[in-house]
Design a protein around this nucleic acid. Sequence first.
DNA 1: AACCAGGACAACCGCCACTCT
DNA 2: GAGAGTGGCGGTTGTCCTGGT
Length: 312
Amino acid sequence: MDIYQGELDVENYNQISEEEMELRRGPWTAEEDHTLINHIAQNGEGRWNSLAQSAGLKRTGKSCRLRWLNYLHPNVRRGNITLEEQLLILDLHSRWGNRWSKIAQHLPGRTDNEIKNYWRTRVQKHAKQLKCDVNSKRFKDTMRYLWMPRLVERIQAAASAGAGASSSTTTPYQLNSHNRSSTIDNMGSSQKVLPQADIINNTVGNYGGGGVPVNVNATSYTAENSSTAASSDSFGTPGSDLTDCYNYPVNQSSNQLAYGETLTSPSGYFNQGLDFQVMEQNNQWMDEGDMYDNLWNVDDNWFLQQQFNNNF
DNA sequence: AACCAGGACAACCGCCACTCT
DNA sequence: GAGAGTGGCGGTTGTCCTGGT
C-alpha cells in the first residue's frame, strides 16, 4: 500500500547502480524516500537500524533517521530563511554558540542542519569578508550593533509596506501566534518547539529600541516578499546588508532608527526608550540556567567609535 | 560552448550520552 | 558494573547548481 501521496522530483534522483546494492550511500532516490515514508507512516519512527532493515532499505539507521528528520518529515520547512528567522538565528547563536539543535528548537520547521548550513555559508562568509573571525568580539559587535538593527529595520519596513495588503506568501508560522496553529504542535517528539512569538517580539522590540515598537505580528516576511529585500538573505551580495550597515545614512529626523547615533552610544541606544538589560532579565524566553555572558551585555564604546569613524 | 570557482545544501562521520540487558 | 545498541549532536565532506570568464 502506497501511503505517501506527495510529490517528489523523481527526475532529479539518481538511479541505483548494481554496485550500490550492498549498503547505499549518497543521495537518496525517490524510491527510497517513498519506502521510508510509507514505512514510517505504517510503523512509526524510532529504532532506526531495525527500521532500515524491516523497510528493506540498504541504508544505515542513522542515514534513515537523518533523511527523515532533515528532509522527509512533514513539518520540515523548505525555502529561504526569513528575515525574522535570520534575526533569531543571530540572536540565539550569540547566546548559545554552535548549539544548532537548541537553536533549531526555536525555529519551527527548521532543522539544525539547515541552520548550521546557513551559518556557515552566509554568516561565516561575511566574517571572512570583514577579515575577522566569526567568534571574535569585533564581529559579534558588528552583528549586534549594525547587522541586527539593520535586520529589524528591514522587518519594520516590510511590515509597513505590507500593512495595507494581505500577503499570499506568508510563511507557515505567524509570529504572533500565542495560539499558533497546531502544525507545529503535531510535530514528532524529535522536534519540540518552544514558544516563538515571545522570542521574536521581545527580540525585535529590543533591537528596535528607541521607543519604536516593531510590529511584526501581522505577517511573516520572507526575502521574496519583502520589498526591501534585494537578495535571499539580509546580507546577500551584491548589496550586502552587512556592507550596507557600514554605509548606513544617519537619520536623525525621522521615526526610523538612527543608527549613526546608536553607534556612538550603545548605551544611549537602549536608553532611548527601553531599558534593555532589565527587559532581558524579565524575558520569559530565556532558558533558566543558561549563561549569556556574551555580547549582549557589552558596552564597547571603543569598537563602536571605531566603526563610526571608519564608516560615517 | 567549455571551463572554473564559489555557493548552497544534503549527507556522512566521529564522538558522546543514554538505555537496556 | 560492563558491554552493546541506539539516538543526538556538531563538524566536515561531497555533490549539484549557478554565474562569471
